[in-house]
Amino acid sequence: MSSVGISKYVIKSSQGNLQQTLNSIKNENIKISSKNIPAVMETITAPYFLFEDEVKDNQHSIYAELKELVSQLVCELDETQRKSTAIIIGTSIIDWYLVDAIEATLYSEPKKEYNSKKNSIDSYAKELSKEFGLNNFTMTINTACTSSANALLEASNLINASLFENVIVLGIEVFSQIMSRGFNAMQLLSQENQKPFDKECDGMVLGEGFAGVLLSKKDTLWSLEGGANCSNSLNITAASQSGDEFAEVMNLALKNTQLRAEDILALKTHGTSTNSNDLAEINAIAKVYDKEIVFTSLKPYVGHTLGACGVLELSLFMACIDDGFIPKTLSCTNPIMENYIPINAHQQCNSGIFMCNYFGFGGNNTSLIIKKESL
């Protein structure tokens, strides 16, 4: 597997644009909202990392946000380069017309009139491709929490196969009642905040996010060295607590990039703050790395952005390294494994090789390896 360049990256999180989010991390000034989530017996109010400007009309607002991301990513590409640029979207969002149909007929709260427009999420990619004069090849990947991480792998494959000079990868996640209800029904939502790898963790906090990267054949400071994806789990919602499934994909990512565990300077974990997932991941880390490995979780800063987290967390991690540090993990005060503790202070760093983990429902697990050359 050959590496591809990461030319640009942009995000919009609950904390704002890329620079605003970076500042929030550096200053530990994290904004978090709350959302009412209808449940079987009663409506609960749960913490939620929401956009400051609420996405009111999903169809039009999402497209407007994606259009702004793409405009930033392609602004330096000429007409010929754009013709050799494809778009892949990664998201966990169900097609909106299906969501509207379910919400209009299934739940007892006030119903809205349902009128199916039969728009798929992939229609965003096709519209963006046409608007910006890009190649008409588009793809949308929906593999739960690994959606946009797998989109990055597929983009790398397309470039390595010489099918395209560039590929734009977008991650999308906005509030979804259906998604929130599902996590709440499985008792996976926190009532306080996220505490990755902490004995007192009580679940995840969901988050909204948009993110985009431009991958290319060009040599750049940042590169996607490669990675791996495996579909393997104990059951439909969880891996075994031994961490074997997670260790499998991490080791395969190292093998595919011809790297050793000792070549990895730091690890961006998936770190969902759910008991089973955190224990599985920490055991996997112990199987793959020695206890000196530096690792952290970004979800306490922006929430679990589900299908968008592949691109969003990758971009945010790169932004931190570009700013000279690996961000600490917030709220881990009572670690679940004494020999493997996420860093509790920002650590100086300007370059290196890093692994990024993403583990999703259904046993769809992905590890990516990125590299920044030293200046």
Rank of each mutant, 00 (worst) to 15 (best):
K199I: 06
E208M: 08
I159M: 11
S240Q: 09
Q241T: 11
A261W: 04
K268P: 04
Q258H: 14
A228Q: 02
S190Q: 06
N251R: 09
L215E: 07
T272E: 06
M204G: 03
S242A: 13
I168M: 13
M204L: 15
A247F: 09
S156H: 12
I178S: 11
F175H: 11
I159D: 08
S180C: 14
E262C: 02
L158R: 02
I178W: 06
V169R: 04
G171T: 02
K199R: 09
G203E: 09
I264W: 01
K268L: 10
D263Y: 05
V169L: 06
A261R: 05
L265I: 13
W222T: 13
S223E: 13
D263L: 02
P196M: 01
E208I: 04
S180H: 07
D202K: 09
N166R: 09
A247H: 06
L221T: 15
L206P: 02
G209L: 01
L170M: 11
V169M: 10
Q241I: 08
L234E: 09
N256S: 12
N232K: 12
S162N: 15
S190T: 06
S176I: 05
E173P: 08
L189V: 05
T269P: 03
C230F: 13
E200C: 03
N232H: 12
M250T: 06
L170A: 08
M204P: 05
N157P: 06
F246E: 03
T257V: 13
R181K: 12
N184A: 10
S162W: 14
F175Y: 12
N235L: 07
G227W: 05
A239D: 04
G209C: 07
D198P: 00
L188Q: 05
G227C: 10
L163Y: 15
G171A: 07
I264Q: 01
Q258G: 00
A185S: 14
N232F: 14
N256F: 03
D219Q: 15
Q241L: 11
V213T: 12
M179D: 05
L163G: 15
L259C: 06
I172M: 02
N157C: 13
T220A: 09
Q258T: 14
V213N: 08
K195E: 03
S162C: 14
T269L: 01
A211G: 14
L206S: 01
L158M: 12
L224F: 11
F197G: 04
F210P: 00
D202S: 11
M186E: 09
N184F: 10
N229V: 02
E248L: 14
G171W: 01
Q241W: 00
L158D: 10
A266Y: 00
